[in-house]
Write a protein that binds this DNA or RNA. Structure first.
Length: 616
RNA sequence: GAUCCCGUAGCUCAGCUGGAUAGAGCAGCUGCCUUCUAAGCAGCAGGUCAGGCGUUCGAAUCGCCUCGGGAUCACCA
């Protein structure tokens, strides 16, 4: 737990007390909320008294005044107050803020909940790519979101297991394999003349596209020969061949499995590179080829299990042999769990892996699936079935659903080639960062290697921040030409702010972050300037921001906060001498403040998976 | 047909457990580098919070309706 009590918590208690003493009403301190004070008025917190007029039986002004008097008389932290209509603006003393600052100054972890042996274990699944094509912009959002959420959950005192469930089998992979076999002429990442395809995932993706091209051609030919379009697709020879290949794979056909291994390995080495650029990683990787048969025994279980509510069996077998569950009482539909030929569907597999996860990690307190919002229905059904099967942990499962990334001309569609390739985009961002940095002449004194590192850090910072600052739930628009901005509300601005603050600290011989006597403190507190005060107030919000971001699974809250802090710091930097301040106590304080703000900016950025440079 | 999500400045987004005159950035216009990094700071301009009705002392925020956009409801994944 956090040992440092924020003043707003104290104020809540005291306001509740005031209401009790003055108007004899019992109010939960937790139910009292403070707003931010309008910049036009003096104050750190604002208490709105309108809701309490009924009990005070007085005008808003009088009520606010009475509560203000009470607080001022009873707590030293409240230095002053002013009343505007029904708004009670409370001014917290500079002494409190300076005191608070020096309490957190030396504590790097002041906003974090420590992870101990008794911390809850949480699993976050994210990324989960198919192995038939390279990653695109949509995957980038998934990866960044998943990674950031795990970091945020760790900051909230959770033991997080990051997992990736790779979809390495199925008809889509067979399509790439078949196309390569037919038209590949033995092309490999090593032998290829196409630069892009030297990265294995792109080579495999090329044959996926190739398959689709030939398939389309075949269908068109058939349609010309008076086939029905649907028939032409379903009975296309290519599709049948791919299907046949999948069957051979499932039977363990040596030749097919060898090809499958070879091409998947190409893809993995490609993914490895992209993941490394993105800075994401996993504690555990699952492969669908190893898990796709799970869940079949659950079907049997469900056929016998009696539903606690309806008294009926949870699953039922239809006359055609398929096994289903009827979810119409819940407002959903009937869902197939086993095809009439006895093979399982995606849902069956997901049921099986969920059960497996909780068996593997009995202490699992939460299982989070980072998957796009187009699968919301799927997860609703999945969790509902688990609940009906009697698994108590079903309610610990959570679909971290995020919105699609759209392009200026609409949604990305892999088949139509309107996707933004992940590697290409990353390169574009890094190139832009390089250009910009060179144009600003900021590479002085940097080794070539260092400079390249910096471009990468800035380019990726821009990309990651751009994507993560948006509420995950929302559909977002990405314009490759225009979204690459390095000014304003962007990652590079925050990185720049950090670099600036570090630059100051580099230029100081020494200072002591906690070297202040009580009388120094009083002196500082009484004379504190507005910007310092605002910075400390912002620092005091960091713990709550981390909590809220964890509760909502929303990195955007962190992004907005870090931006606000950076902006405030830039103003402080602009109009306050820090290093050049002559009075040593004051200089010490400002240096400490600079140090602390830099530290929090860095911490916040790391929660987003973004690195910050010492110089830029 | 059913369910769910979204609609805030020209553009991209905050704000949504109801509170003061709805905020940022980009784009446009104006200033500020012999002082700690100008990827910065200060300012101007830009709004029927899709529209309507309701609840409330008070609505961008809550409820209902309409319009517009998107997603889903496979023996696909």
């Amino acid at each position: 737990m956090n040992l440092i009590c924020n003043v707003d918590e104290l104020l809540r208690v005291k306001v509740a007390e005031a209401l009790k003493v003055l108007y004899n009403v019992q109010v939960e301190p937790g139910s009292i909320v403070f707003g931010k004070t309008n910049p036009e008025f003096e104050g750190d917190f604002t208490f709105v008294v309108f809701p309490y007029l009924k009990v005070s039986k007085k005008s808003p002004e009088v009520t606010a005044g009475q509560i203000g008097d009470f607080l001022k008389a009873n707590i030293s932290e409240v230095e002053n107050f002013n009343v505007v209509k029904g708004f009670l603006n409370l001014v917290v003393s500079g002494n409190y803020w300076i005191d608070y600052f020096y309490k957190i100054a030396g504590r790097r972890d002041y906003a974090y909940t420590p992870i101990t042996e008794s911390s809850p274990t949480v699993m976050v699944e994210y990324s989960s790519p198919n192995t038939n094509k390279p990653l695109h912009l949509g995957h980038i959002r998934n990866n960044l979101l998943g990674y950031s959420v795990t970091e945020i959950l760790k900051a909230n005192g959770n033991n997080v297991i990051k997992t990736n469930l790779v979809n390495d089998r199925g008809i889509h992979i067979c399509k790439s394999m078949l196309a390569w076999q037919k038209w590949g002429n033995g092309e490999t990442p090593e032998s290829t003349l196409d630069d892009v395809c030297k990265k294995g995932d792109h080579l495999v993706g090329k044959y996926y596209v190739e398959f689709d091209k030939h398939l389309k051609k075949e269908i068109e030919t058939k349609v010309k020969n008076n086939w029905e379009r649907e028939d032409a697709a379903a009975k296309s020879e290519l599709m049948l061949e791919a299907q046949e290949m999948l069957n051979r794979w499932e039977k363990g056909d040596k030749e097919v499995v060898a090809l499958w291994n070879k091409m998947n390995d190409w893809v993995y080495s490609g993914f490895k590179e992209t993941y490394s650029m993105l800075g994401v990683n996993f504690d555990k990787t699952y492969y669908e080829s190893k898990t796709y048969l799970l869940g079949k025994e659950l079907v049997e279980f469900g056929l016998n299990k009696v539903d606690a509510v309806s008294g009926e069996k949870v699953f039922f077998k239809k006359e055609d042999g398929s096994v289903r569950i009827d979810l119409t009482p819940e407002g959903l539909d009937e869902k197939v769990l086993l095809r009439s030929d006895g093979t399982s569907v995606y849902m069956t597999q997901d049921l099986g892996t969920a059960v497996e996860r909780f068996k593997e990690f009995p202490k699992l307190k939460r299982l989070i699936y980072t998957v796009g919002n187009e699968q919301e229905y799927h997860f609703r059904v999945l969790f509902l079935i688990l609940k009906k099967l009697g698994f108590k942990w079903a309610e610990d499962c959570f679909h971290l659903s995020y919105g699609m990334v759209e392009l200026p001309d609409g949604k990305m569609k892999s088949r139509e080639g309107t996707v933004v390739d992940a590697d290409e985009l990353i390169k574009l961002m890094v190139d832009t960062a390089r250009e910009m940095t060179l144009a600003l002449g900021k590479t002085e004194g940097l080794e070539k290697e260092e400079a390249e590192q910096l471009y990468k850090l800035i380019g990726l910072g821009a990309l990651k921040y751009f994507i993560l600052k948006v509420d995950p739930k929302k559909t977002m628009l990405f314009n490759p030409e225009e979204s690459i901005d390095l000014h304003g509300n962007t990652g590079p601005l925050i990185q720049y702010t950090y670099a600036r603050s570090r630059s100051i600290l580099r230029n100081v011989i020494s200072w002591d972050i906690e070297n202040c006597t009580p009388s120094d403190l009083r002196q500082l507190g009484e004379n504190m300037d507005k910007k310092s005060r605002e910075l400390i107030r912002l620092l005091s919000e960091f713990p709550k921001i981390i909590r809220d971001a964890g509760k909502d699974y929303n990195p955007g809250l962190i992004a907005n906060y870090v931006y606000e802090l950076s902006k405030e710091f830039n103003q402080f930097y602009h109009d306050t001498p820090i290093l050049k301040e002559k009075q040593s106590d004051l200089r010490n304080f400002r240096l400490s403040l600079t140090y602390k703000v830099a530290e929090v900016i860095k911490s916040g950025m790391l929660l987003l998976g973004i690195d910050v440079p010492e110089k830029m």
